[in-house]
Design a protein around this nucleic acid. Structure first.
Length: 599
RNA sequence: GGGGCCGUAGUUAAGCUGGUUAUAACGCCGGCCUGUCACGUCGGAGGGCGCGGGUUCAAGUCCCGUCGGCCCCGCCA
């Protein structure tokens, strides 16, 4: 279909000025002369009368082309199609009785068109620009600028803006300086895989994009900036998930002369402020707190969703002498009761068994508590004492089903902790309208890396041990606790921080505990160690994941929904086709050459 | 590195055990229509099934490979 010149026409704006947005006009504006500009949302061409819903960022307004008002303006309007860009001048009229649209805020009025300009025509969009999504995500991402016109995306962007600004409002009020840190910085061995940027002026040398501004914000504290924050892009070259993108935004902050409780109190006041300002939601005050050990014990995960119970129970001691060898031999045996779940079918249980295998479980033991018996493949192994012990410990009642995991603690917790979430999901145990934050504190300082055969920092190597734990760190590394804290919201980790080491001596001790030689430490972090020797104040901080917070605020299933131009699971951009090959000339300038295998 | 699901008109989907010209809805194009609001109505045009091999008389349908999208494990201090 060849387009006619009139379809391609685009008139100049001239001296026309928009008087209102498409969401503003009300019955009180009747008889006003107005000028609206926007996109054609719906066209209802009756031949005689033409109705157009004109849409902009904020909403839509019905405009009417009537030949009795302006025959020429009406006659030209037959060419209008979806997503054409218009400017209309006209008069606000009350709609006739019975013709009002209660579904629209502007539904009591319409604009009677006196004159209009076609500011631009548009090709037929690949998918309709509407609320309801009936398009695959890859098509939406290829035409992301069209996807973003949809009200749902628009709303997400607006919520993101509001949340960001309310963070800034709060932190400005609290005396924080918003400061920037380098994007081209130094690669460090700890943590996630770095994105590297080759240096043309220094062939063979590379910058890294920051995984976080961690060291720079500590140096701001040494520099006497007192309180710092930044809305900052961070980069990690790891595999993607629904809640993980290779570049993401943190609300990063750091305070001098502050301890853990001060940071946590300020941070939760800030989060309450943001939810109140952005969504008018009142979060609890104070936020509940769990230690890492409590979270692992009761929920099996370090980012628990505490909107529902279904707690895990340690029954190792009860079944320690069981005839059931698996239970007797296991290092840890835990149980999870689904109240009134005895109606689950064999098929249901098979599916749940497959589910826990994802987390390394060998199988899933279960018992249905029936009126006259315990129905279960393992019931025959359980003694009367064990049954009594389990009944008391788990509060078992007729109609319940109880699931067991007996294995290494990591597997038991991962399998049952995630089974807990799966059951809640399947049986609708979660109040989806609720926002439930919870702090997790007292994290282990170090954890053993079986591959590298050494201890690694669980948070990062600049995290302070708890008071007195600097010695434990050396003698029994696995038992030392950190002054570290995470904020979880509805089962997502949305923030994390720590008190930092501000003593050069302690920092050197830490590197020693991590098996990093003094020489290595000097090479990688020498600038930090040097800075700590020049009067570093005690300092502590935290960073929040803006994308995850906004995802939860908007009820989105993925952070892609709240990032304007996100990447796919293979970290590519379907709109720009990034990443893409570069010319050999570009590579040569950088002193680089591709290996044959990757050409 | 691994497990699972999915690629069929512009879009979203149907297409069972392989069998005439590959269906539908929405969208698109044209006609009619002065009170519609996801307008209505009449008519019409669009694809050869992600790509490449193979099996077969015959392949969206089966097999192999490959590309791409989503979810997850590992990974993500």
């Amino acid at each position: 279909m060849t387009e006619t010149s009139s379809q391609r026409a685009s008139e100049a704006l001239g001296d026309w000025r928009r008087s209102h947005h498409c969401s503003q006009l009300r019955i009180a504006d009747v008889d006003q002369e107005v000028c609206l500009m926007g996109w054609v949302q719906f066209r209802r061409d009756h031949g005689g009368l033409i109705f157009i819903d004109l849409r902009d960022l904020n909403g839509r307004t019905q405009v009417v082309f009537n030949p009795e008002i302006n025959a020429e303006a009406h006659a030209r309007a037959h060419v209008l199609r979806s997503e054409y860009v218009l400017a209309v001048q006209g008069v606000v009229r009350a709609r006739p009785e019975g013709m009002r649209n209660a579904a629209l805020p502007t539904g009591d009025v319409e604009v009677e068109v006196r004159a209009w300009k076609l500011l631009n025509s548009a090709k037929t969009p690949p998918f309709p620009i509407e609320e309801r999504v009936e398009v695959t995500e890859s098509t939406r991402l290829e035409y992301r600028y069209l996807d973003l016109r949809r009200p749902q995306c628009t709303r997400n962007m607006i919520v993101r803006h509001k949340a960001t600004q309310s963070f800034r409002d709060f932190l400005n009020r609290e005396g924080f300086l918003e400061l920037e840190t380098p994007i081209l910085t130094k690669s460090t061995p700890e943590g996630a895989r770095d994105f590297l940027v080759p240096s043309r002026l220094n062939p063979g040398a590379f910058y890294a994009l920051p995984q976080s501004p961690q060291l720079f914000k500590q140096l701001f504290m040494v520099a006497g900036m007192d309180r710092y924050y930044q809305v900052v892009r961070c980069f990690r070259d790891e595999d993607l998930r629904a809640d993980r993108q290779p570049e993401f935004t943190q609300i990063d902050l750091e305070l001098s002369f502050a301890d853990q409780d001060q940071v946590m109190e300020l941070a939760e006041e800030m989060i309450r402020h943001v939810f109140k300002e952005t969504l008018d939601v009142a979060l609890p005050n104070p936020f509940p707190r769990l230690t890492h050990a409590q979270a692992m014990r009761d929920y099996g995960v370090d980012k628990p969703d505490i909107r529902f119970d279904l707690l895990l129970h340690d029954v190792t001691d009860i079944v320690a002498g069981s005839q059931f060898k698996l239970f007797a031999a296991a290092k840890l045996v835990k149980a999870l009761v689904l109240p009134q779940g005895a109606g689950l079918s064999r098929n249901d249980i098979d599916q749940l068994t497959e589910f826990v295998k994802i987390y390394g479980a060998q199988g899933l033991a279960w018992i249905k508590i029936k009126a006259d018996e315990w129905q279960s493949p393992i019931a025959k192994f359980l003694s009367p004492e064990e049954r009594a012990g389990l009944t008391a410990a788990l509060g078992l009642r007729e109609g319940d089903i109880v699931f067991f995991q007996a294995a290494a603690p990591e597997i038991v917790n991962a399998a049952l902790g995630n089974l807990r979430l799966e059951l809640a999901e399947r049986f609708g145990l979660v109040d989806q309208t609720r926002f439930q934050p919870v702090w997790i504190t007292d994290f282990p300082l170090l954890e053993h890396d079986p591959d590298a055969q050494r201890w690694v920092a669980r948070h990062h190597p600049f995290t302070s041990p708890q008071d007195g734990h600097d010695e434990i760190m050396v003698k029994r590394p696995g038992e030392a606790l950190a002054k570290a804290y995470d904020l979880c919201l509805n089962g997502y980790e949305v923030g994390g921080g720590s008190v930092r080491i501000h003593s050069a001596a302690l920092q050197e001790q830490m590197f020693a505990a991590l098996g990093i030689s003094e020489q290595e430490a000097r090479g990688q972090f020498g600038f930090l160690l040097k800075a700590l020797e020049f009067g570093a104040p005690p300092h502590a901080g935290i960073a929040f994941g803006l994308d995850r917070l906004v995802m939860l605020m908007t009820g989105s299933a993925s952070i892609r929904d709240v990032i304007a131009f996100p990447k796919t699971q293979k970290a590519s951009c379907l709109m720009t086709q990034a990443p893409s090959p570069v010319s050999t000339v570009q590579l040569r300038e950088l002193g680089m050459k591709l290996r044959e295998a990757v050409k």
